[in-house]
Amino acid sequence: MKTFFKRFYIAIIFIFLYAPIATLIILSFNKSKTRSKWGGFTLNWYISLFEDETILQALWNTLLIAVLSSLIAVVIGTAACIAMQSMSKKMRTVFMGITNIPMLNADIVTGISLMLLYISFGIRFGFSTILLSHITFNIPYVILSVMPRMKQLNPHTYEAALDLGASHIQAFFKVVFPEILPGIMTGFLMAFTMSLDDFIITHFTKGAGIDTLSTKIYSEVRKGIKPEMYALSTIIFITVIVLLFVINVSGKKSSQNTKNKAQR
């Protein structure tokens, strides 16, 4: 009985979280252009999606910014984590405090503050301002994912590698890097997701003439969302689920392989 209630509760929350997503997927197959009516099944939106230049351009901008900003954030963030390891506790607290500012601050304040910065420094609004802003809010996600891994690291293994004749760079890439790699991967994925899903900060820092998917959707809210948007987000969502499944399966296999090897 107890387990029934528990399962029921999880199911309710699950439906609450995924009902809008199911709605969007259904709408992507809806023949009628209005959201509130079901006009029959169609795949037309999936076809016209690939002929819609503005949506494809917005998709390209979104993906490019997400990839670039999370890669740059990973490099800067990981370097900062390595440096923080050799800092005094006080310095580290200061750094972590600064890291927490964009995490805890409201998006609207971050967005406005960056907008004011670009205006007063005369930076032209466009792709580069969005990219700079996304890097800024992505670095904390990288640091917060890499730092715990860094702390678990045994510092003596690095020293042992140096004693055995490895250069600093060799020692880092052969000893430290593999250990913190899971943290870096999580950080990258978090940063990528946040960049992809961001609207507020992009809204304030984008300027005219450039759109990401979020800002494009926002500009369409009043005149009505193009059904192609539903088709596109369905494709993205399904792709992610498939990728996660593949990664999970292959991840399990490889960990089993290493286990088998260890047993031998």
Binding site: I21, I217, V221, M229
Partner: peptide, 27 residues
Amino acid sequence: VIFILPMWMNFLLRTLAWQTLLEKTGV
């Protein structure tokens, strides 16, 4: 993953979907 996954569907679209669900003649 279960809680992060919805974020891969755009946040504006997900919120707009509630309009469809909540409308007078909605789902």
